[in-house]
């Protein structure tokens, strides 16, 4: 049987959330279990990821400065020893910001009008690649 991956989906701030819900539904439709973190600080995301034992973190960044929040997220993940959980980011991310957050360790960056099918496939592949049977 194919493994059901658990994905934490969190976002940086209040305002718009269309993409957040569309992606949540798309991942669910692709057979993943989606933990809805809602609006969370980087620290809260890391702790939720630990508590919920997720296989992947999906971080919607639209309002926040991507490099600042991603740095804070990895710092907290490191402190909790969960750097093995892959992080993907979606939202409004400039080319420069993408370069920076990929260097920090973000595995993929998705933007508006990336096809849902593509996102589903990539997320699954990234989760599978990092998954270690215990």
């Amino acid at each position: 049987m194919e493994r059901v991956f658990r994905v934490l989906l969190s976002r940086d701030d209040w305002y718009h959330q269309r993409g957040y819900w569309v992606i949540a539904n798309a991942l669910k439709n692709a057979g993943m279990e989606v933990v809805l973190g809602g609006i969370q600080t980087p620290v809260a995301i890391a702790r939720t990821a630990l508590n919920e034992d997720v296989d992947l973190i999906g971080y919607r960044i639209m309002q926040a400065a991507p490099d600042m929040v991603v740095r804070a997220l990895f710092q907290e993940m490191k402190a909790n020893g969960i750097m093995s959980i892959p992080v993907v980011v979606g939202g409004i991310i400039s080319d420069r910001e993408e370069k920076v957050i990929r260097e920090l360790g973000v595995k993929a960056v998705f933007r508006s009008f990336d096809k849902l099918e593509t996102i589903q496939k990539h997320v699954r592949a990234i989760a599978a690649e990092s998954f270690v049977e215990t």
């Binding site: 940086d12 701030d13 980087p42 309002q63 926040a64 400065a65 929040v69 804070a72």
Partner: peptide, 12 residues
């Protein structure tokens, strides 16, 4: 506050 890291003066 640490709660608003990355958000200060960013989206507004």
């Amino acid at each position: 506050s640490a709660r608003v890291v990355g958000l200060v003066g960013k989206g507004g």
